[in-house]
Design a protein around this nucleic acid. Sequence first.
DNA 1: ACCTGAACACCGTTCAAGT
DNA 2: ACCTGAACACCGTTCAAGT
Lengths: 251, 251
Amino acid sequence: MPHRSPPSKPGRPDAGTAAPGLVWTRPAAQRRAPLTREAIVAAAIPLADAEGLAAVTVRRLAAELGARPMSIYSYARIESKEELFDLMVDEVCGEMLVAGLPDSWPQALRAAAIRGRAVLLKHPWWIELIGRNVLLGPNGTRYREQKLAAIHPLSADPEIKQAIVLAVETYMVGQVTFALDEQGSPELERRSAAERQEARQQYQQSLIATGEYPHLAGLAAVTTSAEGRDRLFTLGLDWLLAGIAASLEPR
Amino acid sequence: MPHRSPPSKPGRPDAGTAAPGLVWTRPAAQRRAPLTREAIVAAAIPLADAEGLAAVTVRRLAAELGARPMSIYSYARIESKEELFDLMVDEVCGEMLVAGLPDSWPQALRAAAIRGRAVLLKHPWWIELIGRNVLLGPNGTRYREQKLAAIHPLSADPEIKQAIVLAVETYMVGQVTFALDEQGSPELERRSAAERQEARQQYQQSLIATGEYPHLAGLAAVTTSAEGRDRLFTLGLDWLLAGIAASLEPR
DNA sequence: ACCTGAACACCGTTCAAGT
DNA sequence: ACCTGAACACCGTTCAAGT
């Protein structure tokens, strides 16, 4: 009877890594960090940054942390994956906070918006999630509080103040939404980002060629470089801030 | 030997509906509409409206249309589900088009933004998708063209014109993003929308109670009724438009 | 050639069994 | 009580087989 190896049961492969060499050369299965909510969120964010939100899988995350899938739920104290997303969103909100805002309120709002945009461009999935039903966490609340503090000196109705903060936030988020849409996400499509960009460009040209979009045709020359997009962003932001300031001036 | 019914093979149940009564009472399995791309998109949109994007499943859609899953791919001529989403997004862009825009360019941009917002509030999933890498389709392009046409009389650099249209679009999309976030999506969570709203309210109160958010505390009284949100939207929109107009005026 | 059933390689989450 | 392996009920999509 030939020697047959027994059916290889998985048997705690610890993140699935095969163990080469002698036992002595291998350190005991020691988790790099104790599995905490912070560690889980901290692992999920770069994963989403690099491979898109779809890559953030309970199973994948567990493997990355040398744990079993269901441990994610236990240790992060989440009831569903959506709650993990809530945590990730708030973590990025924390990154958006600015240390020393200028005293001038328009300058302060401007700085906050520019900072927020820079952070969100690094975490494209944030925009995707904010479209869902994300609960406003402590950092998100802090971010809003910070802007309210900046316009506190203004003498205006609470409703007006709320409108000001909302308008600036809203403009920033909208700009990032469109910017990401143009730049494309790193979702590792079947087509690469470059190919997709190329296909899009070509399709736009074909639409313009129909003659149905005469005004768009005149714009086709306008570049959409990174600097160009930065400029478009601040142009609109300054219009908005100027409009706010003008409405507050006594006539 | 007892009479045993043969193992019930599925056998083309046509959308899975059991067939009651005699054959004569049942019309022959006649598809309500021939399976076309339009029919598929037209079925997907109300499904997403009512039950959220997650409910739009190839299998579910097929069942709804009395077809088999893979037929969706064949008949809609899509290579992936993401392409179906692209089609849905563009369909809604078509809904956003306004028939007769006012001659005054600020009025025209205002009307387009208000219309766009109203449409998007009815299709909450649009915001979720636009955060992804959606290709700009014919209707989306038409929507942009329409606004470019509205500001055509202005004498300004092409870049400025692009910035104007982008700023208004951006503001509108950002506002809808936040509005939906507050109103909550119909995703049929484990908690109902009302419960979620309640929990959120309570959590906000607890944050304010810490005393860490003094400026937010002053705002807590501001209602977030539908009319209130409409007002906040137009307030900011008019600031933006005023800022644009002011920057174009010769000094 | 076009269409499609069954199969594949995944998901998030439940739940009963472990400690 | 807390943790987790196996199982469940799904996914989107591949692919070979049908017509």
